[in-house]
């Protein structure tokens, strides 16, 4: 059994909302004792996925979950959901350097490398949901 606690939900519409997502994520990461390196990875991945939600998905939502497993490990999970155009070729979207919008094309694939767990659900016309999990290295307090 894993218990899941949703800590925060942030709407993503404007540029400033990406800043809100980063701040909220950093706050939660600090509160459960993530190291500076882990915080930076988490915040960077959040920034990438939040911007994808806004730019490619035309806006949506970020959800921050804390999952506690029976063995005491805590996973911080970020779930980004949008109702945008979806991704037709997932493999291509996950290829380093591929961008349909003149970007570096490293956001999605980079976020996958930064995270411990990565899940992408999408279909053309059906929106996109990206979920990334970061495991806490030491038992969380509380």
């Amino acid at each position: 059994m894993t218990s899941v606690l949703t800590v925060q939900e942030v709407r993503i519409n404007e540029e400033i909302d990406i800043v809100h997502v980063r701040q909220a994520v950093r706050e939660v990461a600090v509160s459960i004792g993530f190291s500076l390196v882990e915080q930076t990875k988490l915040v960077t991945a959040a920034s990438e996925l939040a911007r994808n939600t806004r730019v490619h998905g035309h806006g949506g939502e970020a959800k921050i979950d804390l999952e506690k497993a029976d063995d005491g490990t805590t996973t911080l999970r970020l779930v980004f959901t949008d109702n945008g155009p979806g991704i037709a070729d997932v493999e291509l979207a996950l290829t380093d350097g591929y961008s349909s919008a003149g970007g570096l094309g490293l956001g999605l694939s980079g976020a996958r490398r930064l995270a411990d767990e990565f899940d992408l659900r999408t279909a053309p016309g059906e929106g996109t949901t990206v979920s990334v999990g970061f495991r806490a290295r030491k038992p969380a307090r509380g």
Partner: peptide, 13 residues
């Protein structure tokens, strides 16, 4: 800074 360097490498930059 070190944490940023490490993250940039993983991101592929």
């Amino acid at each position: 800074r070190p944490q940023i360097a490490q993250t940039m490498v993983q991101l592929g930059i």
